[in-house]
């Protein structure tokens, strides 16, 4: 049993390293994962900072420090989506057949891809937090708060990655995966990514309550600002872990179903 776990761990490690290194070799994936969220952050921070003067807006050390939690969430969504795109690319190109013809547990194929997503998300979150810090974002929660927020967002990337991988396995289509891209923004803006929940319209406010990403972004914000009134980190952790576990299971089931169908 130990030997089997060690063997499958090596497989997950090898696939995770491949997934992560290829991310940096595909320029078309670097732009959305490392640059686009910062561009949106710049637009939001400069264009909507007046919102801070509204009564419902909570007291924070810096507006940038408040909205950067939304950037972490956006980065997580995009990192997850690229996992699905990369998986569809492997399927379309035939590389996935090579993996399927190897004597490895099917779950390891999914976990390997998600390990790469986790690695990517950790790098992304560190990058976003650092850039925002350089531009004046305040993190009263300190290093621990920043690490906690990065962990929440990285687990969310795994959660979204699992869903994207499940879709990729079911469809095997890179075009379809790329067409999902706009839905990232639907998920982002149906959560209080850049504004407090109280400032959302009543309808959006109600929808946000059912969006698990709401609890992730609020939890991350609470950690960064060291203010539990902004969000409960434990609730955020529960949402992130729950989403990751659910979507990983979904992806594994999709792979098993594909094997059964073929």
């Amino acid at each position: 049993m130990i030997a089997l776990v060690a063997r499958e761990s090596r497989v997950v490690g090898a696939l995770g390293r491949r997934a992560l290194s290829l991310q940096f070799r595909r320029a078309q994936l670097l732009m959305p994962t490392f640059v686009l969220p910062l561009l949106l952050l710049a637009v939001i921070a400069s264009g909507t900072s007046a919102g801070r003067d509204l009564d419902q807006f909570p007291e924070t050390s810096s507006y940038l420090g408040f909205v950067v939690a939304g950037t972490l969430l956006q980065g997580a969504l995009l990192a997850g989506l690229t996992a699905g795109i990369a998986m569809a690319s492997d399927i379309e190109g035939g590389f996935f057949d090579r993996l399927l013809a190897a004597p490895v547990h099917r779950t390891s194929l999914v976990l390997g891809r998600l390990a790469g997503t986790l690695g990517l998300a950790v790098l992304q979150m560190a990058w976003f937090l650092l850039v925002a810090l350089l531009f004046g974002a305040g993190y009263p929660g300190g290093v621990l708060g920043a690490v906690g927020a990065a962990v929440l967002a990285s687990l969310t990337a795994v959660g979204i990655g699992g869903i994207a991988i499940a879709i990729a396995i079911r469809t095997g289509s890179m075009n379809l995966m790329q067409s999902i891209f706009p839905f990232v923004f639907v998920l982002l803006f149906t959560a209080p990514a850049f504004f407090p929940r109280d400032l959302l319209t009543p309808t959006l406010h109600d929808i946000a309550a059912y969006n698990p990403l709401t609890y992730v972004v609020e939890g991350a914000r609470g950690l960064l600002q060291d203010d539990s009134a902004l969000g409960d980190p434990w609730l955020g952790l529960l949402a992130a872990v729950g989403l990751a576990a659910f979507s990983t299971g979904l992806a594994v089931l999709a792979l098993r179903d594909r094997a059964r169908r073929t």
């Binding site: 497989v11 490690g13 090898a14 491949r18 595909r26 035939g94 057949d97 090579r98 004597p103």
Partner: peptide, 26 residues
């Protein structure tokens, strides 16, 4: 197995692919 069209990831090097294949076989 060497299937038609040699489905090999063009972004990886020969060494990387062989090492990954080794890991897949334990």
């Amino acid at each position: 197995v060497a299937l038609q069209e040699a489905a090999i990831d063009p972004l990886m090097s020969g060494v990387e692919l062989l090492r990954m294949q080794g890991a897949l076989h334990g």
